[in-house]
Computed example of a mutant assay.
Amino acid sequence: MPYRRLVLVAVTLLVVCGVGYAGLRGAYHDAKDQRDLADLTRASPWPREHLLIPDDVTRPGTVGWVDRGGLDIAYALRTADGRSVPVLWRLRVPQPATGLPEGVDCAVPRLRTCTDLGDGRTLVVTHDTDNSDPSIALYRADGAIVRAIEVQGPDPVGVDDLSAALTRVHAPSDAELLGLLRRDGYQTDWS
């Protein structure tokens, strides 16, 4: 009889310790995720709650990064005709004079052709120059945020496809942001 009690006590202790360990491990990972997310979004000009991402960025190979100018996401855009075109989707701070992000200058028509499409949208075509590849971009000004999508190179993408990528957006969950921003092997000072 005493042997059975000893085995029962040992099994009970193992179960209690295992459950406790699993709970502590989950809490540790949750805390680490929150610290990593705070570190990865620290440079953002807006709080995390104001960040937006396109609805279709959940495909493999999508990467993002945040800096003082905003959020950038590189992913493959699915066009209406079924192609997959690499694009750079951006959430940027507008410049007071133009409403466009820093570095977008429409004043030199030899380099860029800008067309106002209405509803806060501007189509910018960058021509083949010595220091840049040809590209097409659509910018949409929304108050203190400019959404932008840019296609580098010769892949033609229609304005409707670009506009849809700027319109179909959502506020990301913490897990979505971590999936976009945290690279394999990412280490914080406290990791």
Score class of each variant (00 low, 15 high):
36 D>I: 14
66 V>D: 06
60 P>N: 07
67 D>H: 01
79 T>Q: 04
67 D>M: 03
52 L>W: 13
59 R>E: 15
52 L>T: 10
66 V>N: 10
37 L>S: 02
25 R>S: 15
98 T>R: 07
24 L>Q: 11
40 L>D: 01
93 V>D: 04
84 S>Q: 15
84 S>H: 14
36 D>L: 11
54 P>L: 10
77 L>F: 15
61 G>D: 09
76 A>M: 14
79 T>D: 05
87 V>K: 01
86 P>L: 02
39 D>G: 09
80 A>W: 05
71 L>D: 00
45 P>D: 02
80 A>R: 05
70 G>N: 00
78 R>S: 12
44 S>E: 02
95 Q>F: 04
57 V>N: 11
86 P>N: 02
25 R>H: 13
65 W>I: 10
26 G>S: 15
33 D>Q: 12
26 G>Q: 13
58 T>E: 15
24 L>N: 09
56 D>F: 13
36 D>C: 08
58 T>G: 14
51 L>W: 06
44 S>Q: 02
98 T>K: 09
74 A>T: 12
30 D>G: 03
41 T>N: 03
60 P>K: 11
36 D>Y: 12
57 V>A: 11
29 H>N: 11
26 G>F: 13
41 T>D: 01
31 A>P: 04
97 A>D: 10
69 G>S: 11
39 D>R: 13
61 G>F: 08
95 Q>W: 02
23 G>M: 14
77 L>Y: 09
95 Q>E: 15
59 R>S: 15
95 Q>K: 06
86 P>E: 05
70 G>K: 02
30 D>Q: 09
29 H>P: 07
64 G>T: 06
31 A>F: 12
52 L>Q: 10
64 G>A: 13
79 T>F: 06
34 Q>S: 09
94 P>E: 10
47 P>M: 06
51 L>C: 07
49 E>H: 03
